[in-house]
Write a protein that binds this DNA or RNA. Structure first.
Length: 799
DNA sequence: GAGTTTGAAACT
DNA sequence: CAGTTTCAAACTC
């Protein structure tokens, strides 16, 4: 999930750039033309040739794989893939469509659908489609043989329209039917991709379109001087929804995603599955574009929300959340690509992230970027189920612009956000700047260089979980990570200030209200609770997560050896800051990257109202110590025993056996890096052992007490639950309520009488006790019986 | 709850 | 980098 401008690439640390590494998703990069499962995202560096079996592409050439995802009804295995490959360009279109899909409306024309990526000269390269089985391969038309072969392979070859500089793909239809794409040779040399941006050469356009009879949303891109932007692209993913009858469960949107590969120049192809929706991502300009994939997410767990907020559950989220640029400022300035690795296609919503880097040398060919199928989403919440975290983007009154891409040393990365307000939901009347697939308006894809990194997960362990189908409108994606990062729409970012927006962990993106272009600020998820509910809609409150409907838990990173789950379950202690305004590391809230909430602090600035000051303070802290917001307790290699304080303590008088000592507080022993005096916090320390034993004993007691209280509460609750219906239904009473004074006296008399009897008969004591107990049992039975009878009578009377 | 102690953070 | 001050939590009474 990185969309980073070239400028940013130099600024961003490796952590941000290396988002791909965190994916656990296997990279299915090999031979996209034959592989039925085409990766949604491919982060193929220059070595793209290996991917393209049909291409003799030069290193500079790019391969684009387009994958058309099938509709929701599509069954795996029956998916038909369409691969368009040119010598320099490869389109892999893999619809997750069922075979029936192929039979549907193959004749649909791509009218009005123009797909062109800025700087995608390669797209202009003539192509020939060859269909085999469920795969349709597009070969370059440059060679006559290829064209002929393609035609021959395709029985009812589709019409190839060549309109000047436009390439029209009329239909991609029935399985087994070849589809031919033909582009006029813009270059004198057939077979040579137009990699370089030739200002003089007319910018080729091509229309792609419908797969399965569905009309695709046109994407218009122009090559030209801005060819350089194409080179930056690594992957483009275009999803072409199948136009299916009512069978399709969810409205299909056409999303073109261009994957931005994270790191660097290392030739890697990462697969970023689009979970929901269709997203188009563009790779960063640094990387050469390799593939364009038209795909439709498999099981889309995400559902579009007409509301403003989308909750993404960290437990279930795909590895990445990608936001696609929506708004397109009609500026002449070079715009940067909106490409984001889209892990989360929000059903019908697409979050658009767009950045403009005027200073950037890279120019994007496309002029305007109408919003595409993007629903105006103002906030995105990443919610965790069961103590996971929520990150919510909420309207921000101040700080309209969050420009930071990454926080050095911080656990959070920040991105400049793009306005989502201009985006329009699919099927809905699009705003002036927006174009929906249905409208067939051209979609401009900026192959720009902007690269934004928004790892949804922390560290490098992004575990992708199978999307959970949601019945409710809200779309939730959960991930297992404790940390999540979101890219939020924002206004075009003129400048990137990496350090200014550095925010500590536990923050969420918020958007500034008002204006079409809304900026977003990073805000701790916790803070969301401080906002009025009316300000945003939380997906977490959907039926999918009833438990967390009203409360959003704050995500925390492991701190002091305490797991995120533990910290989450346990409310943070409120601070009592009086002089620091909670903007210094003295404040635990601030140090933990959290907003103060329910604290006892005075003159607190650690809140959204003072976001400016807060950001400034964060910057100051980071300037002073880039590691300021990192956990002090490093995680051990193989266990807690290896955990140790990153800096070590400096205790002098506490013997490191009090909570003054950060090591002791973290329940770890002091290490060699500690500078403590008179340390007793070591393995063999008898004082330490004693304290630990005492602490353990105390803890056990607390646990027992807690358990007892819990049990008692449970019993009381259960009792109340059972009594309530009785009381409410006819004024019945519990049996024990019949134990009145008279009943007690009678019972005692019975017991005494039994005792006297035993005494008179000179029975042994044991026998006497037994007889008395039996008599007591009889009394109880009588009481209960009477109570039940009375209740029955009462009920009958009431009836 | 007030006051003291303590050590990290901040400052010089 | 070292010494000092500031600060808020931990601790004691």
């Amino acid at each position: 999930m990185d969309v980073v401008s070239p400028e940013l690439n130099s600024l961003l640390p490796d952590e941000i750039m290396d988002t791909e590494a965190i994916e656990e998703v296997p990279h299915s990069q090999s031979e996209p033309t034959h592989d039925t499962s085409v990766p949604m995202e491919t982060d193929a560096p220059v070595t793209s040739e290996s991917l393209n079996t049909c291409s003799n592409a030069t290193p500079a050439e790019r391969v684009q794989a387009a994958t058309a995802a099938a509709a929701a009804d599509s069954a795996p295995g029956s998916q038909s893939s369409i691969t368009i490959s040119a010598s320099s360009t490869l389109f892999a279109m893999k619809p997750a469509l069922a075979t029936s899909t192929a039979t549907t409306k193959t004749t649909d024309s791509l009218t009005g659908t123009t797909v062109s990526t800025s700087g995608t000269q390669k797209l202009a390269t003539p192509f020939a489609f060859s269909a085999a089985n469920h795969q349709i391969i597009l070969n370059k038309v440059a060679s006559a043989q290829a064209t002929e072969a393609a035609k021959a392979a395709a029985a009812p070859a589709q019409v190839i329209k060549q309109e000047g500089q436009k390439l029209l793909v009329t239909t991609i239809g029935k399985s087994g039917q070849p589809i031919v794409l033909q582009l006029p040779h813009t270059s004198g040399k057939p077979g040579v991709s137009q990699t370089s941006g030739d200002a003089k050469s007319p910018s080729p356009q091509f229309k792609v379109v419908t797969i399965g009879g569905r009309e695709l949303k046109p994407v218009v891109g122009s090559a030209g001087n801005q060819v350089t932007t194409l080179q930056a692209q690594q992957l483009k993913t275009v999803q072409i929804p199948k136009k299916t009858p009512a069978s399709s469960t969810a409205p299909i949107k056409f999303i073109i995603t261009k994957t931005v590969n994270s790191k660097g120049l290392s030739p890697q192809t990462s697969v970023t599955p689009v979970i929901a929706g269709r997203v188009v991502t563009q790779t960063s300009p640094v990387m050469s574009p390799k593939t364009i994939t038209l795909s439709e997410p498999h099981n889309t767990t995400i559902q579009s929300i007409s509301g403003k907020k989308i909750a993404i559950s960290p437990l279930k989220t795909p590895s990445k959340v990608t936001v696609v640029s929506v708004a397109s400022p009609p500026s002449n300035t070079s715009q940067k690509s909106v490409a984001l690795p889209v892990n989360v296609a929000l059903g019908q919503q697409i979050l658009a992230v767009q950045q403009s880097a005027p200073a950037s040398p890279v120019k994007v060919a496309t002029s305007q970027t109408p919003a595409q199928n993007i629903k105006p989403v103002q906030s995105v919440a990443v919610g965790g189920v069961g103590g996971s975290q929520f990150k919510t983007i909420i309207p921000l009154a101040t700080q309209p612009n969050v420009q930071q891409i990454q926080v050095p040393g911080s656990r959070f990365h920040y991105v400049r956000l793009v306005t989502a307000t201009t985006a329009s939901a699919a099927g809905q009347p699009s705003a002036p700047n927006t174009s929906s697939v249905a409208t067939g308006k051209p979609l401009v894809v900026n192959t720009g260089a902007v690269r934004m990194s928004v790892p949804v997960v922390q560290a490098q362990t992004i575990k992708q979980v199978a999307p959970k189908p949601l019945t409710s409108a809200p779309q939730v994606v959960t991930t297992t990570q404790t940390q999540q990062r979101l890219i939020m729409p924002a206004t075009p970012l003129p400048q990137i200030q990496p350090n200014f927006t550095n925010l500590p962990p536990g923050t969420v993106l918020t958007s500034a209200p008002g204006g079409s272009n809304v900026g977003y600020a990073v805000v701790p998820a916790q803070y969301v609770t401080q906002l009025q509910p009316s300000q945003f809609v939380t997906l977490a409150s959907s039926s999918s997560f009833p438990a967390s409907s009203s409360v959003q838990t704050q995500a925390k990173l492991p701190y002091n050896g305490v797991s995120a789950a533990e910290t989450t379950s346990r409310p943070r202690k409120p601070c009592n800051c009086t002089k620091s305004q909670c903007l210094k590391l003295y404040c635990d809230c601030f140090a933990n990257g959290e907003f103060c909430n329910n604290c006892n602090c005075n003159n607190c600035f650690n809140n959204l109202e003072h976001e400016t000051e807060r950001l400034k303070a964060i910057k100051t802290c980071l300037d002073r110590n880039p590691e300021a917001f990192k956990p002090k307790i490093g995680k051990g290699k193989e266990g807690e025993s290896d955990r140790r304080h990153s800096k070590g303590c400096n205790c002098k008088r506490s013997g490191c056996l009090k909570n003054y000592c950060e090591c002791y507080e973290a329940k770890i022993m002091c290490s060699s890096i500690c500078k403590c005096i008179g340390c007793k916090n070591f393995e063999e320390s008898p004082e330490r052992k004693t304290l630990m034993h005492l602490a353990d004993a105390a803890e056990v007691r607390v646990q027992q007490q807690t358990a007892a209280k819990t049990k008692l509460s449970s019993q009381i609750s259960d009792l109340l639950m059972r009594t309530t219906p009785i009381i409410s239904s006819g004024g019945g009473r519990l049996p024990y309520t019949f134990v009145t004074k008279e009943v007690l006296e009678a019972t005692c008399e019975c017991l005494l009488e039994q005792a006297k009897r035993a005494e008179q008969t000179r029975q042994p004591q044991a026998e006497a006790e037994r007889a008395i107990l039996e008599e007591f049992g009889h009394c109880l039975m009588s009481i209960i019986s009477s109570a039940g009878k009375a209740k029955t009578d009462c009920a009958s009377i009431n009836c």
